[in-house]
């Protein structure tokens, strides 16, 4: 897979950054709008997948990328678990306790700890989906 024409390459180079930003927006506004960690993470992964498809598999050193994304996946989900467990070790021994103050509904900094959860879910989903995609691609090229 050598990649596509120069037009596609240039357009995806421009677009993928915007798609990445849009994914970040969805993740950060997860507690206000439909979407959240999973949907945003999928979009973020999409921006990377688009680059790989357009530029061909020589563009990245895929094995290294896959290892990194697996590492990110593990780290993301582990941080999520730590956050959830955090409440257990603090004053109120409750699993998945909303530790932070609620704030006003409708503002970006509200809903307590839920936006933080969303960020970690976003990292984890993006890394996981990218790992799945790269695993398929690497497996195809191993012939």
């Amino acid at each position: 897979m050598k990649g596509m024409t120069i037009i596609v390459k240039n357009v995806t180079a421009l677009l993928s950054g915007l798609i990445f930003l849009y994914g970040c927006y969805i993740v950060l506004h997860g507690h206000l709008t439909p979407g959240g960690g999973f949907a945003g993470g999928i979009i973020i992964a999409g921006s990377f997948i688009l680059l790989v498809i357009a530029n061909g598999i020589q563009y990245f050193r895929l094995n290294k990328e896959k290892e990194e994304s697996s590492l990110f996946e593990g780290a993301g989900i582990f941080c999520f678990l730590l956050l959830a467990t955090g409440g257990l070790f603090l004053a109120v021994p409750v699993f998945f306790k909303n530790l932070l103050p609620g704030g006003t509904p409708g503002e970006l900094l509200s809903a307590g700890i839920i936006p933080v959860y969303n960020i970690f879910i976003g990292i984890e989903v993006a890394a996981a989906l990218l790992s799945i995609f790269l695993a398929f691609v690497i497996f195809k090229t191993e012939d």
Binding site: L129, F136, F139
Partner: peptide
Amino acid sequence: AIVIGLATTALLLAIAIR
């Protein structure tokens, strides 16, 4: 359920390719 479905489908496809 969609998230779970993603995991099962990805695993099924991986097994099918192998």
